Each structure stands twice: as C-alpha cells, then as structure tokens.
Simulated assay, not measured.
Amino acid sequence: MPITALLLSRRSLLIATIAGAFGVYRRPAAAFAATRAEDLDWSLSNEQWAKCLSPEAYRVLREEGTERPFTSSLNKEKRVGIYHCAGCDLPLFSSAAKFDSGTGWPSFWEPLAGAIQTKVDFKLIIPRSEYHCRRCGGHQGHVFNDGPRPTGKRYCNNGVALTFRPAR
C-alpha cells in the first residue's frame, strides 16, 4: 500500500473516531446491525424489528444503543436459569456465570458456547470489544478484561437486550 493511502486511512480513522466520540458522526442506517444475522430467518427489516421490539429494545439491539445504568430489573435477578437474547430468544448466558460488577448492568464472566460474535467498537475513541447475538445480530453490550476468575472477562450486557428464563 502506498504511504499516502496509509496516511489517508489513518487520518480518516482518527477523524471518524473523534467525531464519533462527540456524537457528530452518524452511521448510515444499514450499518446499525454490526453483525449480520447468522440465521436467515432472523434477517428482518428495520420495520419488522420495530414491530416486534419495544422502542428501547429496538434502540439497543438494532441501533447499538446503551440503556441507562441501574434501570434493568435483571441486575437484581438471583434465580438459577438462562438469559436469552430479547430479539430471537437464543440462550446467551447461564446464571452460574452472572456476577455483580457494580456497574449498573447485568454482568457475566462467560457466555454460552457459540452464543455471541464480537467486533471492535471505536465509539469512545479507545477500542472496545462489542458483542452481538450470533443468531440475529442484536447488540448486547461490551466485554472488558476486568472480570472475575476463571476468565477475567466482564460481559457487560444491556438488560433490555435479554430475557430471563428461570430453571424448573
């Protein structure tokens, strides 16, 4: 790659990162779902998603929004069970991996095998690892390296992006 192209791409990345941090840069609507639905049955149009989700769930799952901290009833959920994607009902986390991170969002130290996909997010200038439901591509939250053992990970999830099913 020529050095001028490399410099231009770095410059463009820097401008987009700074603009994104200040809320100036808005991605086109087609780019909102960061990962494509793996299952074609869950490749719904924006209109179809809007009909089957609450406005807040739509904003989080389809537009990669974040709910306000300490607003989810799932923060205090202590029963044994499974947390599912609120968009497509795919099981994502076991209650055995849930912990109180004190951040205001339901947090887990490990997802269920094959449940999520990740991508890098530059919305706050520094790169973060964002994760989505593997099946429908719905945005769930971000993963950080400050969680408990055994993984050391903290999957910080939007409560509105989850539904809880207690064990029988």
Score class of each variant (00 low, 15 high):
39 D>T: 10
122 F>L: 14
51 K>A: 12
113 A>Y: 01
160 V>G: 09
5 A>T: 10
116 I>Y: 09
31 A>F: 12
115 A>F: 12
83 Y>F: 14
158 N>H: 03
151 T>Q: 08
110 E>P: 00
48 Q>M: 10
96 A>R: 06
114 G>Y: 04
88 C>Y: 06
56 E>C: 00
80 V>H: 12
42 W>H: 15
138 G>A: 15
29 A>N: 10
104 G>R: 02
13 L>R: 12
84 H>W: 08
159 G>A: 06
44 L>Y: 11
15 I>S: 10
34 A>E: 15
90 L>K: 09
97 A>L: 01
5 A>S: 14
104 G>H: 04
130 E>T: 08
61 L>K: 07
99 F>S: 01
149 R>Q: 15
21 A>F: 10
55 P>K: 03
166 P>D: 05
115 A>R: 10
130 E>H: 08
160 V>M: 05
164 F>G: 09
18 I>M: 09
45 S>E: 10
83 Y>I: 01
159 G>Q: 04
142 H>K: 13
143 V>C: 10
138 G>P: 05
77 E>R: 01
125 I>F: 11
70 F>T: 02
60 V>M: 06
109 W>H: 15
134 R>P: 00
23 G>H: 08
13 L>P: 00
20 G>T: 12
56 E>K: 09
113 A>T: 11
115 A>Y: 06
35 T>L: 14
112 L>R: 06
4 T>V: 08
86 A>Q: 07
44 L>C: 14
89 D>N: 13
103 T>W: 03
83 Y>E: 04
29 A>P: 01
149 R>L: 04
125 I>R: 15
62 R>H: 10
79 R>G: 02
131 Y>K: 05
123 K>S: 15
17 T>M: 10
163 T>W: 00
152 G>Y: 05
109 W>T: 06
42 W>R: 13
99 F>W: 05
42 W>K: 11
30 A>D: 15
68 R>P: 00
121 D>W: 08
11 R>H: 09
166 P>H: 03
32 F>V: 00
72 S>V: 08
29 A>G: 01
52 C>E: 05
122 F>D: 14
65 G>F: 05
55 P>F: 02
71 T>P: 04
74 L>N: 07
141 G>I: 02
15 I>E: 13
145 N>P: 13
97 A>H: 13
98 K>D: 03
140 Q>T: 07
19 A>G: 05
118 T>R: 14
49 W>P: 02
122 F>E: 12
130 E>F: 11
37 A>R: 09
114 G>R: 07
41 D>A: 15
95 S>I: 01
149 R>F: 04
144 F>K: 12
155 Y>D: 06
45 S>M: 08
99 F>N: 03
63 E>D: 09
163 T>Q: 07
62 R>F: 04
82 I>L: 04
21 A>Y: 12
88 C>G: 02
105 W>Y: 02
38 E>R: 15
132 H>N: 14
49 W>A: 03
11 R>A: 14
57 A>G: 11
41 D>C: 14
103 T>H: 04
127 P>W: 13
60 V>K: 07
84 H>V: 05
14 L>D: 13
39 D>N: 15
158 N>A: 02
144 F>H: 07
142 H>F: 02
82 I>R: 07
51 K>Y: 00
30 A>I: 10
